[in-house]
Amino acid sequence: MTNESVQKTVLGDVEVIRVVEWQGPFGPAADIVPGAGEEVWRENEALLAPDHWDPASGLAVMALQSWVLRSGGRTVLIDTGVGNGRERPESPQFHHWRGDFPGGLARAGIRPEDVDVVVNTHVHADHVGWNTREGGAPGEWVPTFPNAQYLVPAADDAHFGKAGGEDRLVYADSVAPVHRAGQAVLWDGHHRIDENLVLESAPGHTPGSSVLRLASGGERAVFVGDVLHSPVQVLRPDCNSCFCLAPAEAAATRRRVLGRAADERELVVPAHFGGTGIAEVRRAGAGFALGEWRGADGDGGAPELH
């Protein structure tokens, strides 16, 4: 897959559009999923490389992407990337980032004013950045999507709203302006968007981390945000990413989400998987295995992981 790509598929009555802003080696795999030993990566080298892992460098391959759902006559945007021109001193890869997220939406036929609902699965820098854009005055940030309702997990809003350091910067430029514009809606537990889509709390990665479930026309999918960062975590669900704030809770949530996906045949759609971006999960003994990969263009057929 190339950078800045757009792919589409349909699940039931819902059109699913994948907008990839960037994809490539991100950081050492041993640092991103520190609990997974190198042997797990090596045993699955033929399947992880090159879409999820670069064996030569040991770097995990990841994507910066968003998902757009056209459901019930409305346009729903899941997560909004890093945003441009942000002060992120603790995250060099995102500091003063310059990408073309609006261009990706445009290539998918979506204007900012077309978006009806923005879902922030959680309040991390790479999931809320394009909530806002630069306004007319220096240092002014205004909502990028003027007609949208922004769904923000209440627990994350409370946590990051009083955080310090870079988390405070993220909240100040990407979440607080949405509140000031009167477009933020806080929720907890469950929040139904329409007859096809429902948000559910999935805490651990952050206090308010959430997943979005799609059920339409006999087809199901779960957009899991950062419950998963790598396919290795399907094989080793007790292994958290280095970004999880509550490790025990994150691992329990991961097992629960994967178990339901396997039992109810939900496609699993993580925020940062490279390759085709959509996976089938099934139970394997006491754990889980990946079945076929399915692309946002409807293709599939890659072999399973071990």
Rank of each mutant, 00 (worst) to 15 (best):
V257N: 03
A158Y: 11
S209N: 11
A181E: 07
A176V: 09
D188Q: 13
S174P: 05
E249P: 02
D173C: 15
G204W: 08
F145V: 05
E266S: 04
V234C: 00
P207H: 11
K162S: 15
V170S: 10
D173T: 15
P207L: 09
V232W: 01
D167Q: 13
H191N: 05
T253P: 01
D156Q: 02
F145L: 05
P247F: 04
D156K: 03
T206W: 06
P207G: 09
V224P: 01
G161I: 12
A158N: 07
Q183T: 09
G165L: 09
E266R: 05
N240E: 04
V170R: 06
F223A: 01
P247T: 03
Y171R: 10
V211N: 01
R180Q: 12
V185S: 14
W187V: 08
R133L: 13
A262M: 03
V178S: 10
R265D: 11
V211E: 01
V175Q: 09
A221F: 07
D226A: 05
P138F: 05
D194N: 14
Y150E: 07
R168Y: 10
V178F: 11
F243S: 13
V175W: 08
E266H: 07
A248P: 01
C239E: 02
F145M: 04
P153S: 08
P207M: 09
L258Q: 02
P153V: 07
D226E: 15
W141V: 07
V227Y: 04
A148P: 08
L199K: 09
L235D: 02
G189C: 06
V185F: 06
E249W: 03
P207D: 06
G161S: 12
D238W: 11
G218I: 04
H179M: 08
G217I: 06
D173F: 12
Q183S: 14
D263I: 08
H205D: 09
R213N: 00
A154I: 02
H190M: 12
V142H: 11
Q183E: 09
A202C: 10
H205M: 11
A251I: 07
A215F: 00
P153K: 03
V175P: 10
N147L: 08
A252N: 00
N196E: 00
S241K: 03
P177A: 14
A251Y: 08
D188G: 12
R254T: 02
P237E: 03
G182F: 06
L235E: 02
L186Q: 14
S201F: 04
G161K: 12
G165T: 04
A137C: 12
D263H: 07
E219Y: 00
A148S: 08
V198Y: 04
Q149R: 15
P231T: 02
Q233N: 03
A246S: 14
D194F: 03
S210T: 08
V227H: 06
V198P: 01
S210N: 05
V227M: 08
R254G: 02
Q149T: 15
A202W: 04
P146W: 10
H205E: 13
S241H: 07
A221M: 03
